[in-house]
Nucleic acid binder design. Structure first.
Length: 872
RNA sequence: GCCCCCUUGGCGGAACUGGUAGACGCAAGGGACUUAAAAUCCCUCGGCCUUCGGCCGUGCCGGUUCGAGUCCGGCAGGGGGCACCA
């Protein structure tokens, strides 16, 4: 046997990519009658260049797509670009490049990079969300949503940068200052467009139960985000002599009305109307309220913030005891936009309330007695009791469970009246708030509405769409370029024809990504969707993306599906049937002596394990090896696809990224790991190319001995890998493929050098199976091997082979034998051996005899096909 | 502060519903081939001991079980999410 040449990915990979393209293998026909399978990876933002970390989830999706295609499905596997957003405007300001040019240039670069990976994508359906053709349809959806009552206007607070004249995202506010201008950020109230996602709160929550193809973690995060609670709204009468002019009551929302008799204070938000009114005549209170507002939105500030309050002097009367007065505090931990912006504090039943009561010396009355506590001496110390128990110190509630007390209080308060209305009202509250979509920016989808002095807000008629972004804009002036573009901004009212003004807000980019998966099903349709196509393809069978989109993107998309169904664009409420959140690719970071980040290519590593040392390859100066971090441009720890395709090839990168680590976890990119993957690629090539001339396809059924065992190994691997792909367990599939190669390599050589025709046929069969199960992960190598094995067609066109069930089952199995739960030996028995004979052969073992020491076993447990355990 | 998850060799990880702990890979060590190197192939690779055998071992402590990495209770450490949500 001559030594085969090394496999050369630089030649093979472009060759097969071209062959797939020319055969239009991955272009999907909506009219194809086979069962559909829609696999989608979250589309990328065109930030500049792609690195290998980006390509891991595309590779996962590609393995699924190629496997499902072989399984006989009509597979849709498209790709596009989430192309609107702030980075393009930042680039425009920094580099004087037009956001559109910058974006499309990046798309061009990244598309070329992605294509190096050999992904089986239907590129004919590609679009970018900044394409006029796309956002035109998005404006049509907006108009339809508006008509259907799914869009509203709401005044909400925003972070305003007075220098840049722009609204800042939370992440752009650093220590209360604008990230670019450094100016003190103001809180401004702006009228904003919102999508009424809260109309669907209950549906969005309830339907999570049915999303069993989603990770539990994501389902839980969504449930928490929607945040349903059942409680009681209670109206408390203000003590008239303490109340500000015109105020008579305070309404609070509580989920623990059962603890009403343990209440000792009221706490209201700084923005609560009662607080504002009281502050008018109380300068110290006004100052405190101002301090609360300044605490703003920073989470870390809030985490460390001390619970603080300020006594307004106002008092309320307890609903069940007119003589019982409670003070009203303004507290920094009460939020105006949840519930009623006011709570009653029960220190014994809530830790935060307890901390507050201790600080301001308020009464702490236990009202729930823990099950194992003694009523005589139970007292609250440092910790509140939030658990179940028996009601005490609570008048007519005493002896009840908290749940019964909840009902009793609610019934009573609903029957009691204050100013002619019930004093209590059972309510369901959601944390979920409406989705504000207004962005005061240029590079986004224009909101197709005209402001007319006479007609008010007038949607742009569909016939006049799209409202396109003007090209002649400047970022020289601070603020939104659309706002100071007179020719674009000033238009006639579509309704009355008088001069009017365009809405200059553009849409949140989350809107763009909330329906792209539907557009892929009919990307050239005049309407936003072809409902037949959308209904046929959706839901996406397998959606793959990062955990960072677990809440907003997925929730907004679920809302959009419902809104689009309501407006007749499709009839699918849940857009994603299966969801998978993949881990990232991480890499070591390197810093030079002066603290700057270094590119891995610039670093030379010496030694290994704890003795590893790094040096600057040019200067020889020592380099600090930093922690593993997600690959990112800013830390320079990236590896580009072209770095890999120029050396090891895309298959090696694909193979390595899916091996070792389970797909939901991060994987560390190491040179030695990539080399290991490449060694295996080359090993398979040597095995196949070396054997191919000496073996031939034929009837392997007469193969015996090692050749028969080889067949069994191949069919078992075929079954296992298929199951692994179904579960996205790529790392296990790869381990199984390694095992198969280890098992068959020596047998293949013997088959090649011998004269056993059935053996040669078995070798050909085993190698063909090996190549087919590798093909979804290493498609280029697979094509090369497939051809050399003498197959006429491309492996990408071949159906997934069927395993022979007769070859999967073993006639004899090896059973471990334990004594008192410790393994002492093993026995080989027939698969269907009787219990008695298994027990008998286990007891014959030397090790068993030795441990029993002549005594009879107390008990023998035989788990068929599993284990024998002897209790001595 | 609240909620969730995780913890297995030097490393990444495997172990189906409680049934042989450490598959597979990486790193390391030894050997073969070679004038040499690369490549390749073979062997060793959790710890300890009295080494053809045995004891211990899946973060720690306890429990359930014939049998626990897996189930239960407690503790420790690490990671993630959050809108202080009443």
């Amino acid at each position: 046997m001559t030594t085969p040449e090394r496999y050369n990915p630089r030649a093979s990979e472009p060759k097969w990519q071209k062959a797939w393209d020319e055969a239009r293998l991955f272009e999907t026909d909506n009219a194809d009658p086979r069962p559909k399978y829609y696999v989608l990876e979250m589309f990328p933002y065109p930030s500049g260049r792609i690195h290998i970390g980006h390509t891991r989830n595309y590779t996962m999706g590609d393995v699924v797509a190629r496997h499902k295609r072989a399984m006989g499905y009509n597979v849709l596997h498209p790709m596009g670009w989430d192309a609107f957003g702030m980075p393009a405007e930042n680039a425009a300001m920094q580099n004087k490049v037009h956001p559109r040019d910058w974006t499309y240039q990046n798309i061009g670069t990244m598309r070329a990079q992605l294509k190096l990976m050999g992904l089986s994508i239907d590129w004919s359906r590609e679009f970018a969300t900044c394409d006029v053709d796309y956002y035109h349809r998005q404006q049509m959806l907006f108009v339809d949503f508006l008509e259907a009552g799914l869009v509203g206007r709401r005044v909400s607070k925003v972070n305003w940068d007075p220098v840049d004249q722009t609204v800042l995202a939370n992440e752009q506010v650093i220590d209360g200052k604008g990230w670019r201008s450094g100016a003190e950020v103001e809180q401004r109230e702006l009228a904003q467009w919102v999508f009424k996602i809260t109309d669907f709160s209950q549906d969005l929550l309830g339907s999570i139960d049915d999303l069993d193809g989603w990770p539990d973690k994501v389902r839980l995060m969504q449930r928490n985000w929607i945040g349903r609670s059942e409680g009681l709204s209670i109206r408390w009468a203000l003590t008239p002599e303490t109340a500000p002019e015109g105020e008579t009551e305070l309404e609070v929302y509580t989920t623990r009305p059962d603890t009403l008799f343990g209440s000792s204070f009221m706490a209201i938000a700084a923005d609560h109307p009662l607080a504002r009114k009281a502050a008018e005549t109380n300068a110290a209170l006004a100052a405190f309220c101002e301090e609360c507002r300044r605490m703003g939105t920073s989470v870390t500030a809030l985490e460390t913030a001390e619970k603080k309050g300020f006594d307004t002097g106002i008092k309320v009367r307890h609903p069940f005891d007119a003589d019982w007065e409670l003070p009203v505090y303004v507290a920094n931990f009460v939020l105006m936009d949840y519930g009623t912006g006011a709570i009653f504090g029960c220190p014994s039943g809530d830790q935060r309330d307890l901390d507050f009561a201790r600080k301001y010396d308020l009464p702490v009355v236990p009202v729930v007695l823990p099950p194992d506590a003694d009523a005589e001496d139970f007292a609250i110390g440092e910790e509140a009791w939030t658990g179940d128990g028996t009601m005490i110190n609570s008048s007519f509630l005493d002896g009840m469970t908290p749940a019964d007390a909840f009902a009793a209080i609610a019934d009573r308060l609903e029957a009691m009246e204050l100013d002619g209305r019930p004093q209590g009202d059972r309510q369901v509250q959601f944390k979920l708030r409406d989705w504000g979509i207004s962005r005061q920016r240029y590079w986004g989808c224009p909101i197709p509405v005209v402001h007319c002095d006479d007609c008010g807000l007038v949607p742009v008629p569909k016939a006049q769409l799209p409202v396109t972004l003007p090209d002649d804009i400047t970022f020289e002036r601070p603020g939104n370029p659309l706002d100071h573009h007179p020719a674009w901004k000033h238009v006639d009212c579509p309704s009355c024809g008088k001069p009017a003004r365009r809405e200059t807000d553009t849409m949140d980019t989350f809107v763009d990504s909330s329906w792209y998966f539907a557009r892929f099903t009919a990307p050239n349709e005049d309407a936003p969707t072809d409902p037949d196509a959308a209904n046929a393809w959706l839901p996406v069978d397998q959606y793959i993306g990062g955990i960072e989109h677990a809440i907003l993107h997925l929730l907004y998309s679920r809302f959009f599906a419902r809104a689009m169904s309501r407006t007749g664009h499709m009839a699918v409420d849940e857009p994603f049937k299966g969801l998978f959140t993949q881990g990232m690719v991480v890499h070591e970071t390197y810093r030079s002596e002066d603290g700057g980040w270094l590119d891995p290519g610039q670093v030379r590593i010496e030694g290994h394990d704890s003795n590893r040392k790094a040096f600057d390859a040019d200067t020889g100066k020592p380099v600090t090896i930093g922690p593993l971090e997600k690959m990112s441009k800013s830390k320079k720890n990236t590896i580009g696809p072209e770095d890999i395709t120029q050396s090891f090839g895309a298959d090696t990168a694909r193979w390595f990224m899916l091996s070792d680590s389970p797909p939901e976890r991060d994987v560390e990119w190491t040179d030695s790991g990539a080399e290991g993957a490449h060694r295996f690629i080359q090993r398979v090539w040597r095995l196949v190319a070396g054997a191919a001339p000496t073996i031939a396809a034929g009837d392997p059924s007469a193969a015996n001995g090692d050749f028969a065992a080889m067949r069994k190994a191949a069919h078992k691997a075929l079954k296992g890998v298929g199951e692994d792909f179904e579960r996205l367990a790529f790392n296990k599939a790869i381990a199984r493929i390694h095992e198969l190669v280890n098992a068959i390599a020596p047998v293949i050589e013997r088959a090649g050098s011998g004269n056993d025709r059935a053996g040669k046929a078995a070798a050909h069969e085993a190698l063909s199976i090996l190549i087919q199960i590798m093909a979804p992960i290493a498609p280029h190598l697979a094509e090369e091997c497939w051809a050399i094995l003498g197959h006429a067609d491309m492996v990408a066109k071949e159906p997934w082979p069927a395993f022979d069930p007769a070859l999967i089952a073993d006639d004899t199995i090896v059973l471990p034998v334990q004594i008192n739960g410790k393994k002492r030996g093993e026995i080989a028995v027939a698969r269907d051996a009787e219990r008695d004979s298994v027990e008998a052969s286990a007891l014959e073992l030397d090790a068993v005899q030795r441990h029993l020491n002549g005594a009879a076993p107390k008990k023998v447990i035989v788990v068929p096909g599993r284990i024998v355990n002897i209790v001595a």
